[in-house]
Amino acid sequence: MEKVIHPERNPDFVTGAYSDGIIVGGFLFVSGQAAVDFKTSQFVLGTIEEETKRTLDNIKSIVEAAGATMANVVKCTVHLADIAEFDRYNVVYATYFPGIKPARTTVQSVLAENIKVEIDCIVKLP
Protein backbone atom coordinates (compact mmCIF):
# COMPACT_ATOMS: atom_id res chain seq x y z
CA MET A 1 0.00 0.00 0.00
CA GLU A 2 1.46 3.33 -1.02
CA LYS A 3 -1.03 5.95 0.18
CA VAL A 4 -4.52 6.35 1.65
CA ILE A 5 -6.73 9.05 0.08
CA HIS A 6 -9.56 10.84 1.88
CA PRO A 7 -11.17 13.99 0.46
CA GLU A 8 -11.77 17.04 2.61
CA ARG A 9 -14.72 16.20 4.82
CA ASN A 10 -16.22 16.63 8.27
CA PRO A 11 -13.51 15.52 10.73
CA ASP A 12 -16.15 13.58 12.68
CA PHE A 13 -17.05 11.54 9.59
CA VAL A 14 -16.56 7.86 10.31
CA THR A 15 -15.74 5.87 7.19
CA GLY A 16 -15.90 2.50 8.92
CA ALA A 17 -13.39 -0.23 8.21
CA TYR A 18 -12.27 1.07 4.81
CA SER A 19 -10.48 3.96 3.13
CA ASP A 20 -12.11 6.17 0.52
CA GLY A 21 -9.20 5.45 -1.79
CA ILE A 22 -5.95 3.52 -1.82
CA ILE A 23 -3.08 4.17 -4.23
CA VAL A 24 -1.17 1.02 -5.20
CA GLY A 25 1.11 0.46 -8.18
CA GLY A 26 0.08 3.58 -10.08
CA PHE A 27 -3.65 2.98 -9.59
CA LEU A 28 -6.22 4.52 -7.27
CA PHE A 29 -8.88 2.13 -6.00
CA VAL A 30 -11.95 4.08 -4.87
CA SER A 31 -14.27 2.40 -2.36
CA GLY A 32 -18.00 2.32 -2.99
CA GLN A 33 -19.39 5.84 -2.71
CA ALA A 34 -22.96 6.99 -2.29
CA ALA A 35 -24.96 10.20 -1.93
CA VAL A 36 -23.30 11.38 1.29
CA ASP A 37 -22.73 15.01 2.17
CA PHE A 38 -19.08 15.02 3.25
CA LYS A 39 -19.67 18.18 5.34
CA THR A 40 -22.51 16.73 7.46
CA SER A 41 -21.73 13.00 7.10
CA GLN A 42 -25.39 12.40 6.26
CA PHE A 43 -26.93 10.52 3.37
CA VAL A 44 -28.77 12.86 1.01
CA LEU A 45 -31.59 10.84 -0.47
CA GLY A 46 -33.33 12.04 -3.61
CA THR A 47 -34.11 11.02 -7.15
CA ILE A 48 -31.80 8.62 -8.97
CA GLU A 49 -30.45 11.61 -10.89
CA GLU A 50 -29.70 13.60 -7.72
CA GLU A 51 -28.09 10.66 -5.95
CA THR A 52 -26.00 9.74 -9.01
CA LYS A 53 -24.72 13.32 -9.28
CA ARG A 54 -23.76 13.55 -5.60
CA THR A 55 -22.16 10.08 -5.72
CA LEU A 56 -20.06 10.98 -8.75
CA ASP A 57 -19.16 14.37 -7.24
CA ASN A 58 -17.88 12.47 -4.18
CA ILE A 59 -15.86 10.16 -6.41
CA LYS A 60 -14.52 13.16 -8.31
CA SER A 61 -13.30 14.74 -5.05
CA ILE A 62 -11.44 11.54 -4.13
CA VAL A 63 -9.96 11.21 -7.63
CA GLU A 64 -8.81 14.84 -7.58
CA ALA A 65 -7.35 14.45 -4.07
CA ALA A 66 -5.14 11.74 -5.60
CA GLY A 67 -3.96 14.10 -8.37
CA ALA A 68 -6.08 12.67 -11.19
CA THR A 69 -9.23 13.60 -13.11
CA MET A 70 -12.34 11.70 -14.09
CA ALA A 71 -10.70 11.16 -17.49
CA ASN A 72 -8.28 8.82 -15.68
CA VAL A 73 -11.07 6.49 -14.48
CA VAL A 74 -10.67 3.13 -16.23
CA LYS A 75 -13.33 0.95 -14.53
CA CYS A 76 -16.52 1.51 -12.53
CA THR A 77 -18.79 -0.92 -10.77
CA VAL A 78 -22.26 0.45 -10.19
CA HIS A 79 -24.93 -0.91 -7.88
CA LEU A 80 -28.49 0.32 -8.44
CA ALA A 81 -31.28 -0.39 -5.97
CA ASP A 82 -33.70 -0.52 -8.93
CA ILE A 83 -32.32 -1.53 -12.32
CA ALA A 84 -35.45 -0.02 -13.90
CA GLU A 85 -33.81 3.38 -13.18
CA PHE A 86 -30.78 2.51 -15.33
CA ASP A 87 -31.64 4.87 -18.20
CA ARG A 88 -32.14 7.84 -15.84
CA TYR A 89 -28.92 7.15 -13.92
CA ASN A 90 -27.01 6.62 -17.17
CA VAL A 91 -27.86 10.09 -18.47
CA VAL A 92 -26.17 11.68 -15.43
CA TYR A 93 -23.30 9.16 -15.37
CA ALA A 94 -22.42 9.91 -19.02
CA THR A 95 -21.90 13.61 -18.25
CA TYR A 96 -18.94 12.74 -16.00
CA PHE A 97 -17.20 10.84 -18.80
CA PRO A 98 -17.57 12.90 -21.99
CA GLY A 99 -14.54 11.37 -23.70
CA ILE A 100 -13.54 7.73 -23.62
CA LYS A 101 -15.91 5.92 -21.30
CA PRO A 102 -14.43 3.69 -18.57
CA ALA A 103 -15.24 -0.01 -18.56
CA ARG A 104 -18.33 -0.55 -16.40
CA THR A 105 -20.42 -3.19 -14.70
CA THR A 106 -23.91 -2.25 -13.49
CA VAL A 107 -26.01 -4.56 -11.32
CA GLN A 108 -29.11 -4.37 -9.17
CA SER A 109 -28.29 -4.73 -5.46
CA VAL A 110 -29.83 -4.35 -2.04
CA LEU A 111 -28.25 -1.12 -0.75
CA ALA A 112 -27.96 0.27 2.78
CA GLU A 113 -29.82 3.29 4.14
CA ASN A 114 -32.36 3.35 1.26
CA ILE A 115 -29.79 4.78 -1.14
CA LYS A 116 -30.43 4.33 -4.83
CA VAL A 117 -26.87 4.06 -6.17
CA GLU A 118 -23.37 3.09 -5.04
CA ILE A 119 -20.31 3.33 -7.28
CA ASP A 120 -16.70 2.24 -6.91
CA CYS A 121 -13.95 2.73 -9.45
CA ILE A 122 -10.36 2.15 -10.48
CA VAL A 123 -8.27 5.07 -11.69
CA LYS A 124 -4.96 4.95 -13.61
CA LEU A 125 -2.93 7.77 -12.11
CA PRO A 126 -1.18 10.20 -14.48
Rank of each mutant, 00 (worst) to 15 (best):
T52Q: 00
S31W: 02
A66M: 07
A35D: 02
F86W: 15
I48L: 08
L45P: 02
F29L: 12
R54M: 12
V74Y: 05
A68M: 14
S31I: 03
I23N: 04
V73C: 10
F38R: 07
Q33L: 10
T40K: 03
A35R: 01
I48C: 12
G21R: 01
S19I: 00
F38Y: 13
T55N: 00
G25R: 08
N72Y: 05
D82C: 08
A65V: 01
T47E: 14
T47A: 06
N72P: 14
M70H: 13
F43T: 07
I23V: 10
C76N: 15
H79I: 03
V36C: 01
G26L: 06
F86R: 13
A84S: 13
C76R: 09
G26W: 08
I22V: 14
M70R: 07
T40Y: 01
Q42H: 12
V44F: 03
E51S: 12
C76F: 03
Y89S: 08
T47M: 11
E85K: 12
S19A: 14
D82A: 10
E50F: 10
F27V: 05
A35K: 01
G46A: 05
L80C: 09
I83N: 10
I59W: 02
R88V: 07
G67K: 10
L45K: 11
V63C: 07
Q42K: 11
V44K: 08
G25Y: 09
S61G: 01
E50W: 08
A66H: 07
V30R: 05
F43I: 09
C76G: 08
F29M: 06
A66T: 01
E64Q: 11
F27N: 01
N72L: 05
I48D: 00
I48A: 00
G21D: 08
S19M: 15
S19W: 15
S31K: 03
F86A: 11
K75R: 12
D37S: 13
S41H: 13
I62R: 01
T47F: 15
L80K: 04
A84H: 15
M70I: 11
K75I: 10
C76I: 15
T55A: 03
T55K: 04
V24C: 02
E49L: 04
K75V: 06
E85T: 09
S19V: 04
G67N: 08
G26A: 06
G46M: 10
A68C: 13
Y89G: 03
E49Y: 07
I59Q: 00
L28Y: 00
G21W: 05
D57Q: 08
A65D: 01
V78T: 14
Y89D: 00
K75F: 13
D57W: 05
G67R: 14
K39I: 10
C76K: 09
G21K: 07
S31Y: 01
R54I: 14
F27M: 04
V24R: 14
G67E: 12
I22N: 07
I83R: 08
N72A: 09
V73G: 12
